[in-house]
Simulated assay, not measured.
Amino acid sequence: MGTPLPGTVGPTERADAARNRQLLLDAAHELVREHGVDSLTMDALAKRAGVGKGTVFRRFGSRSGLMHALLDHSERKNQEAFMFGPPPLGPGAPPVERLVAFGRERLLHLEVEGELHRAAEIGEAGDRYSGAPYGLLRAHVAMLLRQADAQGEIPLIVDSLLAILSAALVMHQMHVLGYTREQIGDNWEAFVRRVVTR
């Protein structure tokens, strides 16, 4: 088993350390939702959580470590929903309906925390497409496409579909071009249905 990323829960993390980590991540989520990703500094987080700045640095190492821990926390919750949650997002619905629900749920998530995702996408550059979070999304979408008997080069189709859900693109579409999350979701659904129609 590999070494956990900074800020992620390791197998031997004590219960009090896990509680402190959760307190800090909850406070970080509040800051991002209320004031945007630029407000997420180590000082601001320490003040919001009522702890010393040293505690924040010990837990996350740096602002970059904090951002990755926050995204990891968010991604884990989303992954649990589409892997084990109720249908249509989770198992039990037809694959096309699950794909549609996956995209719409992802867009809802981006509407709330899109700036955080966009900042991480920009910061990760070349790592974005080879990292574990993207790999899991790819595997999930590929599985559903195969279950729906989609034709063509599945890996290329997966990347093309996931590009529609890129945080940077979605934020541009909503905040610059003026599209709503519902319109972008309808576009996602149209693409999914075209891909699986023979």
Rank of each mutant, 00 (worst) to 15 (best):
L136R: 14
G152M: 06
A69E: 00
T12N: 05
Q183N: 08
A27H: 01
E153M: 12
A69L: 02
S64A: 13
E113S: 07
S130C: 10
G135L: 04
M42E: 00
A81C: 11
G61M: 00
V176M: 12
T41Y: 00
L5I: 04
L66G: 00
V100E: 01
R33I: 08
L156N: 11
E97F: 12
F84L: 10
A46S: 10
A148I: 10
T12Y: 05
D149S: 10
E115T: 01
A27M: 03
G114Y: 08
G135S: 09
A132F: 09
H175A: 08
L70Q: 03
L169V: 07
S166G: 12
N20D: 01
R138Q: 10
H140Q: 04
Q173E: 11
Y179C: 10
A139V: 03
E80P: 01
I184N: 00
V96L: 12
M171F: 03
R48H: 06
L23T: 13
Q22L: 13
P95S: 00
D127P: 05
P86N: 06
L161A: 04
T3N: 15
P91M: 14
F102C: 01
L162V: 06
P88G: 11
E111R: 12
K53T: 06
G135Q: 03
L45D: 08
E182Y: 07
I122K: 14
G50C: 12
S160H: 05
R21E: 01
E115N: 01
I184S: 01
L116M: 09
D26T: 15
N78C: 10
A15K: 05
G152K: 00
M174V: 12
R76E: 00
P95I: 04
S64Q: 06
Q173G: 09
L116N: 07
F60L: 00
H68T: 07
R14E: 11
L116F: 03
H172I: 05
L23W: 13
D16F: 04
G131R: 15
D16S: 06
R193L: 11
N78E: 10
V32K: 02
A81L: 14
A15C: 05
S39E: 09
E13F: 12
E13H: 12
K77I: 08
T55G: 04
R193A: 09
V37G: 10
Q173A: 13
V141G: 09
Y129R: 15
I164Q: 14
A49R: 14
V9Q: 00
A163W: 15
G85A: 05
A167R: 02
L116T: 02
I164F: 11
R59Q: 04
F57W: 03
R19H: 02
Y179L: 15
V176K: 14
L89N: 08
L162Y: 09
A18W: 06
